[in-house]
Amino acid sequence: MNILIVEDEKALAENMVNYLDQSGYHCEWVDNLTNAQEKVWSYSYDCIIVDITLPDGSGLDVIERLKAIKSKSGIIIVSAKNAMEDKIAGLDIGADDYLTKPFDLSELNARIKSVIRRRSFEAQNEIIFQEIAISPYDHVVTVHGKPLNLTKKEFDLLLYFVSNQKRVITKESIAEHLWGDDMDMVDSFDFIYSHLKNLRKKIEEKGGKDYIQTVYGIGYKFMKE
């Protein structure tokens, strides 16, 4: 999987490249609009991450170029401005998703996976992790072939874990992923624990193993053993 990162801030780009490389992607990075235009012209990427504010222009131009050449790449906008107009403009001209800085790398990773799944018609395919099979398209999860009855939040949580295997995922990142704007509604992360407890219980009931490890005080890690 090839990913192009268009981001003028070196430190941020490095983080993205590192995190995504470790997730098994092949990342390329450019820090300006001109180079970005050249890259998307010459190569094909599965997903392109574009910062809107670039030193030599707007990231929206890259998206327009991609649309002009009928590229099949997924497009995720990252922007420091949490401005509705930018968001709407970006999604209007064909971006798949929008992230406001600062964001968690685990969140970016999950979004990339989701965009690529949708783009490559993998949506109908199942994501298999050990005895767990997740079908993102119709929101069905099976353990040893037996269907699980999960709430929407539990489903989202499991998918988020599977997308970020072997990574420490912070409680904040989970809260933001599950609740978004409503994240402020909670004064503690007890509710995550609650969701996790239910998820574990439901998986174990069907004979699945508990893959969720607690990283004390910080968050959780999803991995086999």
């Binding site: 600062p102 990574r167 910080i218």
Partner: peptide
């Protein structure tokens, strides 16, 4: 300010996230 502060904040956040790994 919004834009300029968000970027270093994002760096701090992502760097610490990387360190957590």
């Amino acid at each position: 300010t919004s834009h300029e502060i968000q970027t270093p904040l994002a760096i701090i956040r992502n760097k610490s996230e990387m360190l957590l790994q």
